[in-house]
Amino acid sequence: MLPKVDLSDIAEELSRLGDEIQRAYDDSEQTVEPAPQVPLSGLAQLLDTVRASEAESRGESAQALRAATGAEPDALIDHGLGLLRQIAEVARRLNLKLQAQAVEVLAVPFACWMLRRGCELQHPEEVVNALATLANQLEQPDELAELYGLMGEIAEGIGADRVQGMDPTDPTDPWLVLLINRGIVATRSHEPVLMEEAFDAIGEQLPDHAPYFFREGMGQMEALDYPPHVREVMQRYFDKWCSGQRLH
């Protein structure tokens, strides 16, 4: 199930997970720093500040955030993601793997909320990883189509400098990973329109990776018995990118 892009839902889930992490911390004999209450309290305060600063437009929201915090909105989104990372790391040190993962995926609704209110995502690594985690958890095409929409918001919200600085030779580059994973999610959504949008972006921005992606995609068509209308789209892009000289 996808988390809602809603601060109240994020805060409620954070409170639930925080209680579980705090109980494990209190019962643990090992020393874990920082104490979970430190980043949990920091993030709760940030969410309250962001909620209080919401305005009718993106520009007004960004201006209200600056006035309330004295910081740029881009720095606030980084700060929030950093606090989520700290909470997840504490949970992992307490052997709470499921809780750690649940905290990490909150990066997606938090980032989308902030992007909708005038922020730009300069450091997308945690959010891209969280999107991949969610994709692995979902099976229904309609949920995957909804996730595709969130992936699009993240893609649009990543700073232009970060995109231009992408290293196409690095398979862990977050922009590369996001585009490839978005293509996979579009395919699993069974929505041709989403597939074409995602596939065109791969071809335009990752031309060296496109032949491999579409060869792998055609293999998955048979292995996972995709419906004909999905196969038709994949076949079309396979023919475009994996025929003649493009195959070599």
Rank of each mutant, 00 (worst) to 15 (best):
E13Y: 02
E13R: 15
E13D: 15
E13H: 09
E13Q: 13
L14H: 12
L14Y: 10
L14C: 13
S15N: 11
R16M: 06
L17P: 09
L17G: 08
G18D: 07
G18T: 05
G18R: 01
D19Y: 12
R23A: 11
A24S: 14
A24N: 00
A24C: 00
Y25W: 12
Y25G: 09
Y25V: 08
D27S: 14
D27Q: 15
S28I: 10
E29A: 13
E29I: 06
T31E: 14
T31P: 02
T31D: 15
V32Y: 01
E33N: 10
P34N: 04
P34G: 04
P34E: 07
A35L: 03
A35P: 11
A35H: 10
P36M: 07
Q37W: 14
Q37F: 00
Q37V: 12
V38C: 05
V38L: 12
V38P: 03
P39W: 03
L40Y: 06
G42Y: 02
G42N: 12
G42S: 14
L43R: 01
L43S: 00
L46W: 04
L46H: 01
L47A: 01
D48Q: 08
D48V: 03
D48E: 15
D48M: 05
V50P: 02
R51W: 03
R51H: 11
S53T: 07
S53Q: 00
